[in-house]
Simulated assay, not measured.
Amino acid sequence: MITEGYKFRIKDMKMKKSTMFRAAHKLAKSIVDKTENYRMAMSYALKLIWKMAKDYRVRVTDSNIRHMTYELTHKPYTGPKYKDGVPDWIIDQHFDEQEKTAIWNNSFNSRVKKETEKAVLIQFDTDYGCLFTWCPKSVYKGELI
């Protein structure tokens, strides 16, 4: 019965907002060199600290911040792969299996054939001929005309 009262008191304790912001600033300063944008780092740090506060953690220690920094900066990249600036999901969406294999393995040249306000027409030169696809400029990572 004593332990139940103790758990209840711990749940009622809340992390102060000033403590949350101090911890978020510490975390954001440690990850800003990876993001190159302090605003984005601070936003993500606040989300993590807020999650800790929701879990009824009263304190954020330096070891917690070091652990979160390590987790944020050492995760492998899991985003899309690119072939000459075109993301893999565009290639998967617009081509069949044989054409995808030709683009990934036998493409020796690619270029922007046409450009509109919001998209570019990409030409992939392969050993089996030319393949074309439209790619939105918002996701295209190659050089424009």
Rank of each mutant, 00 (worst) to 15 (best):
T3Q: 10
T3Y: 09
E4Y: 10
E4F: 09
K7S: 06
M13D: 06
M15A: 09
M15I: 12
K16T: 10
K17A: 00
K17T: 01
K17G: 00
S18F: 08
T19L: 03
M20R: 10
M20C: 08
F21K: 02
H25K: 07
H25E: 11
L27S: 01
A28E: 02
I31W: 04
V32E: 14
D33S: 11
K34L: 08
T35E: 09
R39V: 15
M40E: 15
A41L: 10
S43A: 14
A45P: 00
K47W: 03
L48R: 14
L48W: 05
K51L: 11
M52P: 00
M52F: 11
K54Q: 14
Y56S: 13
D62S: 12
S63T: 13
N64T: 04
M68C: 02
T69R: 08
Y70Q: 07
E71I: 02
H74P: 05
H74S: 07
H74W: 08
Y77K: 03
T78P: 00
G79L: 04
K83M: 14
K83Y: 09
G85L: 03
G85K: 03
W89V: 05
D92S: 13
Q93S: 15
Q93T: 15
D96Q: 09
D96M: 04
D96A: 08
E97C: 00
K100H: 08
A102L: 10
I103F: 10
N105M: 02
N106R: 12
S107E: 08
N109V: 01
S110I: 01
R111F: 11
R111V: 02
R111L: 04
E115A: 13
E115W: 08
E117F: 07
F124W: 07
Y128E: 14
L131Y: 14
